[in-house]
């Protein structure tokens, strides 16, 4: 265990070195972060733009903004910690160099998923903080301590879910030949998480709750912060996420077994 922690530390250090080399990226990432925040928030201003507009049923402007803030936070996790690793694996598969990773005497899943981080993306913590601030200012009161704690637990659950989804996508990458655009597909589906899940109806709602559990990632933490999450939902979210992760790990192990290198 400590060995893996040390490895993680080393990988983070390498990423920090890389991040320092591309100094221009810092400013670009900050700008992008602000821009994406704007694109995440502007639609809300349009939806709630005028007094006469009804908005999203069951969500006031401030409450919807809390969901957006959760979304920005998780998008930072996705772009900073999850997508770069996915890209690294895809590069490995394309060049046929994944063999080198598999030859190393450490868990392959651990190695590939910690191989690359985009550290400048921590900036989205700042922007999501700003949006949280505006949201609770709108609502008129802050979240309760219990609400914050529950939300933190749910963020951990959300990260676990994102990570498991990521593992599933990589497993798919072993089978499909051209996978360059899977990261793009992943982020574009994740985009749906910027809205409260009550927007979706019927089959789509089912899909975003159970198949790709976007509702668990942003809507539930927001509801926890707003103090209206049912305890049962919290328990089943945690349970569901662990099942999801276990299934993902099984599938990963199976596809590693089937993997044939692209080289030769």
């Amino acid at each position: 265990m400590t060995r893996y922690l040390r490895l993680l530390g080393l990988q983070l250090r390498t990423s920090a070195l890389l991040a320092a080399q591309y100094r221009f990226d810092f400013f670009v990432d900050a700008a992008i972060s602000l821009f994406w925040t704007a694109t995440a928030v502007v639609p809300l201003f349009v939806v709630y733009g005028e007094e006469t507009r009804p908005g999203i049923p069951g969500w006031s402007f401030g409450e919807a903004l809390v969901v957006t803030a959760c979304f920005i936070l998780l998008q930072g996790v996705l772009d900073g910690a999850i997508n770069p690793g996915l890209q690294a694996v895809i590069d490995h598969i394309r060049k046929g160099t994944l063999d080198f990773v598999l030859l190393k005497p450490a868990d392959a899943q651990f190695l590939v998923s910690t191989s690359r981080f985009m550290l400048w993306r921590v900036f989205s913590l700042v922007t999501s903080g700003i949006v949280f601030g505006i949201a609770f200012h709108q609502i008129g009161h802050g979240p309760s301590v219990l609400g914050v704690l529950t939300a933190l637990v749910l963020f951990a659950v959300a990260t676990l879910l994102l990570y498991s989804l990521w593992i599933l996508i990589i497993s798919a990458a072993f089978i499909v030949v051209k996978v360059d655009n899977l990261t793009y597909l992943f982020s574009s589906i994740f985009d749906a998480a910027r809205w409260p899940s009550s927007v979706f109806r019927g089959a789509v709602k089912f899909f975003f709750t159970f198949v790709i559990p976007l509702a668990v990632m942003t809507t539930f933490p927001a509801e926890a912060l707003l103090g209206r999450l049912a305890p049962m939902t919290l328990v089943s979210s945690i349970g569901g996420a662990f099942v999801f992760a276990a299934v993902a790990r099984r599938i990963w192990l199976r596809s590693i077994g089937h993997y044939t290198s692209a080289g030769g």
């Binding site: 939806v47 507009r53 574009s188 809205w195 927007v199 979706f200």
Partner: peptide, 14 residues
């Protein structure tokens, strides 16, 4: 390219 479809769901709900 799912965004237009998601926006469609959002706006029809609204």
């Amino acid at each position: 390219t799912t965004m237009p479809l998601i926006m469609m769901m959002l706006w029809t709900t609204v």
